[in-house]
Every structure is written in structure tokens, then in C-alpha cells.
Write a protein that binds this DNA or RNA. Sequence first.
DNA 1: AATGAATGAGGATTCATTCAT
DNA 2: GATGAATGAATCCTCATTCAT
Lengths: 190, 190, 190, 190
Amino acid sequence: MPRIGMEPQRRDALVRATISEIAVSGAADITVARIARRAGMSPALAHHYFGSKDNMLLAAMRHVLFVFAAEVRGALVMADTPRERLTAIVRACFAPSNFRDEVVAAWLNFYVQAQREGQTRRLLHIYHARLRSNLMYALRPLSDDPERLAEGIGAMIDGLYVRQALRRDNLTSAASTDLVLDYIEKALAR
Amino acid sequence: MPRIGMEPQRRDALVRATISEIAVSGAADITVARIARRAGMSPALAHHYFGSKDNMLLAAMRHVLFVFAAEVRGALVMADTPRERLTAIVRACFAPSNFRDEVVAAWLNFYVQAQREGQTRRLLHIYHARLRSNLMYALRPLSDDPERLAEGIGAMIDGLYVRQALRRDNLTSAASTDLVLDYIEKALAR
Amino acid sequence: MPRIGMEPQRRDALVRATISEIAVSGAADITVARIARRAGMSPALAHHYFGSKDNMLLAAMRHVLFVFAAEVRGALVMADTPRERLTAIVRACFAPSNFRDEVVAAWLNFYVQAQREGQTRRLLHIYHARLRSNLMYALRPLSDDPERLAEGIGAMIDGLYVRQALRRDNLTSAASTDLVLDYIEKALAR
Amino acid sequence: MPRIGMEPQRRDALVRATISEIAVSGAADITVARIARRAGMSPALAHHYFGSKDNMLLAAMRHVLFVFAAEVRGALVMADTPRERLTAIVRACFAPSNFRDEVVAAWLNFYVQAQREGQTRRLLHIYHARLRSNLMYALRPLSDDPERLAEGIGAMIDGLYVRQALRRDNLTSAASTDLVLDYIEKALAR
DNA sequence: AATGAATGAGGATTCATTCAT
DNA sequence: GATGAATGAATCCTCATTCAT
């Protein structure tokens, strides 16, 4: 029973379903049918709205990246000093909306997909560059090798995400944040 | 024309082919046929030796983990002091045999597979535990929170692997090593 | 915003769009959606007017046949002698409105469809019979085996259409006409 | 129960099944599944041998063209004079192996496919060129406009094929041959 | 030991068609 | 009158896996 103006809801539901499905089934075993079923519609309709499975995955990724960027931006609003900026960025990285199991699992799969798929790779590079630029801006007044430190921070964050995805242990959001902030603290100390 | 005693060579060729194929095609697009072709035999023979595709992937992973462990063990032989041990471990992590593009790509895919596949996950946990235990042993005399620091080091290493897989930049083996050693240095300084 | 009395325009636009689409996409790859888009309306509306895709194709065919018949009728109006009649018929066959690439392409596709679809077949038989009857009427006073000659003429015309559809060479409308008229001339000579 | 050395048989069976299926279902409605079933195997196996549906259709076409060429070549062996050559060619065109309903139906579908598919088009052009060259060779000593006449003959043959495909009437092989030979006779008379 | 033969089970995608609005 | 929404049915194609040789 078709109602009118469904497109936004449908697209939204599909994006959400895609993220969940990545977390549950893994990027390798994902199927359009499963995504569509989870989103409560037929595979044909999913195709109608997104054109292809790849587009669905890309839309999911864009959504995750968008939320991530928003969180960082939001955190930075209240930060005045460089140190506050650093804290804000790191906190945002591990904020619940980004560090939820589902989203973390999606991240890992994006990384893998980026190895092969150009568009995914490009999006990931943009995210990397943005994070890096945010870090650099805050680090420049504090460090004599901000580039290097930004690289280290980025790597540690990525590593914590990966490990979270495997749930090796239940490292909490707070513990992850502290670990990175600690690293920064030590690296800036003289 | 079948010769006798081919089994070890065949298995070896398949393991190597699997790793290469993961790097080239990605875990999602891997097929037994491609692996077998790369290893110079028929898909049927590959099955004959490994029973299933999953077993092939597991064997490849075991091989990577085995080489990794050997490299670390080898590096530790000559290390006498805790600091030397730390350096040895980190160097081993980024030694060419482990940090080759192909192997790094394989790692990333193992992480993903571990999200779903029990045996893969178990193997990865063993590797994690071993690395952690090695680090702890060296850190205990030097740090007052060795566990925490080990976690940070592990995360950073994993992160550097992930980033290497995406070749965001051509961070060399040496640069990666330095970054981690630097972190350790700073974290241990007082 | 629906206006009243649109039906004739709509149907017309769809028929024209169907012919164009056959020429561009081929009968095999034709879709209602493409026809409708070309005609500037939704697929649903196309269905509303024609009930089914098959009906759309049939309507397109009827249109082509109707134009063809009209052209022949028109040409015959001014023809008084048998020879003039023959010339008129042949000229009409290759008149621009019938021998346009688009229309020729459609013809070829009608032939194919006629192999399977009863209604199409019937329409085509009617066209054949009419052409034949027109030829026979003109040939009877001139030939001692008019039936046979009519068959030959019809075949040659069909063949020229088919070849035109493949654009093997750019045989012009005029050249085609001449070829057939020449044949007739020779066949009637004694 | 797989036996060895099946490839040639399988390919052959598929080519034959494709031709039959084109005749029965039409090029538009052909499916790999139907072809495979008719050839007594699974669709997967058909794909295994031909790679794609298009390749199957092309193989069928090549077969038809090959048989056609062989028939013409065979007929020409015994022809010594130009007139005999012409008769031989025309007879070959309507020889049972080429003028069988099934094959004729396939021809018509090839024409249609050639409108869109490059390879099909190329093959058809080769056939056209060859027939033309054969005709020209025989016509040159007899006609003062051999090119033109070859075109006319070719068109008439094509037209007779098309009409045969529609079975407008049951024009026999012999009648078709006579019609073309008659045309040639008249055209060469002075 | 080794492989070509063979297939069942899916998976992405397309499309004619229907329906509520 | 007109359309976006929605889907069932089909189609091509792929692939892990099995089996007879």
C-alpha cells in the first residue's frame, strides 16, 4: 500500500539496515535481499532507490562519516585552547554514536572495501585528511613535530577501533579516550 | 602426471597463492578457482588438499601468524635488557616479512573475517595475547602501568598496519618503527 | 497537473516514442519505462492508455502500416496506366516517410515479432496481401505470370528494407527504387 | 556422471540447441536456461563452456554462417562457366541445410541482433561481402553493371529468407531458387 | 595424485504491472 | 487524469563443491 513521499524514509531505513547488516553479516556476506528485508521492503525497491548494492554500501559509509564529522565539529565548538581542541577531538572519536559496536564494525569493513573500491578509498582519505588537519591545527602551537604526532594519534585511534571491532576485551569508550589523551600528554611533555 | 610426495609443495603453493590473492582481489572477491590457478593447479585439487575454502583461508592465516611469531622470537634472542626487548618486538612487527604490502593486506582481511568466523577469531586472540604478554614482560620493570601501555602499543601497531593497508601515505617500515618506539620512550620517561 | 482531452496526444506520443525506441534500443531491449520517459510521462500512465507493453508495440506497428498504406494509396491516385501504377507503388515503398532509418528498423523488428506473436503476424500478412494485390492488379495486363513476379518484387523490396536496416551501404532511397523498377522492366521485357 | 572429453559434444549440443531455441522462442525471449535444458545440461555448464549468453548466440551464428559458406563453396566446385557459377550460388542459398525453417528463423534474428551488437554486425558484413564477391566474379563477364545486379540478387535472396521466416506461404526451396534465377536470366538478357 | 565435468544454490539486477493516492 | 510506490517473477551469471575417471 504505497503512500506518498516515502523516499526519504526508505533511503534512511536502508542506510540504517545496511550498517546493521554489515555488523551482523560482514561485508563479504552482505546481500541486498538481507538489507532490504531488514529495512522492511523488497530487494527491488532497494534497487529502485539506490541503483546498486555498491551505492547502498557507499551511502551507509557516507552516513557514518557524516555523523563522525558532525560529532567532531560539535565537540570543537566549545574548545578554545589547543589542548581543549585535542581533548575534544579525541572524545568525539570515541563518543557513543561513533564507537557503537555496529558502527565500529562498519568502519572495519569500510577499510577493507577501500582496498579495492575507488570511491570508498576516496571517502576514507577525505576522513583521514580531515582528522589530520584538525589535529595539526591544535598541535602546531604545542609540538615541534606536529605532523609526526598527528600520525601517531591517528594510528592509535584506528588501532583502537580495530580492536574494538574484535572485542578482544571490552575496552570502554572512556578507557580508549584516556589512552589516547595520555599518549598526547606524554608526547607533549618536556 | 601426478608425482608422489607433492603434498607439501602443493599445500605451500596454495597458502602462498591465497595470501597473494587476498591482497589482489580482497577477501570478499576471493575464489577457490583463482587461488588454485595462481598456485598452478585445478580447483578440485585445492579442495582435495584443504577440504574447503575456509580451511584454505585459515591455513593462510596460520602461516602469516607463524611467520610473525618466528620473527618476534628471532628478534628477542639477542635482546637482554627490557628496553632492548621492546625495541626488538617493535622492529619485528615492522620487519619486511611482516610489513610487506601483501601480508598487511591479508592482516586486514583476517580482522574482518574474525568478526564472524570463530576459528579466525581464536587465532587472532592468541596472537594478541602473545604480543601482549611479550610486551608486558618487557614493560613490567619499566612502567607502573604496563598493562595500559601494552594496550596502547598494540593499538598503535594495529593502527599502523591498517593505515599501511590503505597506503594513505607511504609510511616506511622504519618510520612506523620509530613512531612506536617514540611513543614508548615518551611513555616511560618521567 | 492533468488536463482533459489529453488522451489522443498521449497515445500519439507513446506510439512515436515506441518507434524511436525500437530503432535505438532494439525490440529485445525495449522497456516500457524507456518508452514512457521518451514520451514524457510515467510508465504507469503508458499502461493506463495501452494496457500492456504488447499493445504498445502493436499500436506502433499499426501506425507504421497505416502510414505505409496511406503513402501507397496517395501515390496511386495519380497513376492511370498499369506501368504508372507499378512505378507509384515502388516509389511509395521507398518514400522518405517509410524508408526513414527509424521506420526501417521498426519493420525489421516487426518481422521478428511476427514469428511468435499472432496479432503481429496477422497484421503483417494483411500488409503483404495488400501489397501483393496492388502489384497484381497492375501486373495482370503486362505479365503472363503476374503472381510470380509480384512475389519477386515483394521479396526484393523486403530484402532492400532488411539491408537498409543494417546499413551495409548507404543505398539511397532513389537507388533502391531504381533497382526494383529495373527488375520489373527487365521482367516485363520480351 | 562426468565423462571425459565432453567439451566438443557439449559445445555442439549447445550450438544446435541455441539455433532451435531461436526458432522456437525468438531471439528476444531466449534464455540460457531454455537453451541448456534443450541441450540436456544445466545453465551453469552452458556458461562454463561459453562464458556468456552472447557468446552462445555468436557461436550459433558462426555455425550457421559456416555451414552456409561451406554449401556455397561445395556448389562452386563443379561450376565451370559464369552461368553455372551463378546457378550454383543461388542453389546453395536455398539448399535444405540453409533454407530449413529453423535456420531461416535464426537468420532473421541475427539481422535484428546485428542492429545493436557489433560482433554480430561484423559477421553479417563478412557474409554479405563474400556473397557479393562470389556473385561479382560470376557476373563480370556477363553484365555491364555487375555491382548493381549483385545488389539486386542479394536483396532478393534476403527478402526470400525473410518471407520464408514468416511462412507467408510455403514457397518451396525450388520456387525461391527459380525466382532468383529467373531474375538473373532476365537481367542478363538483351 | 589429479582433473575435467557437472550442478545446486544463490546473488544482483531488471521489468512489467498494480495500486493507493 | 496522473504518478510514485511497490513487488513478484525472471534472468544472467558465479562459485564452492562433488564425482567419475
